[in-house]
Amino acid sequence: MARIKRFFQDVYKNKTWLLMVLPGVVWFLLFSYLPMFGTVIAFKNFQFHPDGFFASVINSEWVGFENFEFLFSTDDAFIITRNTILYNLVFIILGLILAVATAIILNEITNKKMAKVYQTGMLFPHFLSWVIVSYFVFTFLSVDRGMLNNIFQWFGMEKVSWYSEPEYWPFILVFMSMWKGIGYGSIVYLAAIVGIDRNYYEAAMIDGASKWQQIRHITIPMITPLIVILTILNIGKIFNSDFGLFYQVPLDSGSLYPVTNVIDTYVYRGLMTMGEVSMSTAAGLYQSVVGFILVILTNYIVTRINKDYALF
């Protein structure tokens, strides 16, 4: 009883804070938590029932882990898992380095007007959807009309049929992902860098610290919490991938599958003929659970190193 009483006292004492989180909590409950009950269909053979979704869920038979099997059953399963993880690792590491570097440079260069222009320019790709980006890539890589092959011919080199030669694609995909994401990523870091108290830098300059030392000893440590959080979050999505990047940019070309097939595209292609709600839910759940475990692990490690940086 006493504990319950104390709980309510706590609630009362924190009422302003609770009021602040209330709108968000309501939203999360409605749009995120409530729909999570739907996940049970990952373990069922989903059959429709005339009385609506709930009746359908209740009346469908349990099948255990059968809906997950297609993710593990073939040799392709290994390839897609490998591709997904490797690409994401590269995206996380390279994306982090490039975004932080760009943000620091934007903050440091002397001509602020130009910095603004660059920043505007770099955010541009973020406005374009992958479909449009894929058109653009196509204008470069098209076999007979592409800009690259035209240049190659100009120099008397062999034409490359880009869309059927897998060896180039890991680079193309990484490049495109960076190209589209860096402007956006650097903004977050820039906002944090600009937010750093100027006094730190002044003190450092009085001590004769070089720019490089300032960056190393002030800027980077000050944005480390943000870096850690964003990285932990990205690790949580390591089994997910940007469908547009892996499906639309390579134009769904079969010969590129060994390097472009990732879990999301595999699920999409596998279920196209059957439209199985249960199996796609199962795939989503698999991605979430792995991501969740990884995040908890990383967060635990971060906690051991420095408690302040932990996500929760």
């Binding site: 297609f70 059953s73 769904d252 079969g254 010969s255 599958y257 292609r269 003929t273 059957m274």
Partner: peptide
Amino acid sequence: PKPVRTEIAAISNVTSEFAQA
């Protein structure tokens, strides 16, 4: 396809890899 849907999903993937080309 219910009894072999795992296989069909895998075959569907292999097919889209090769058939179009």
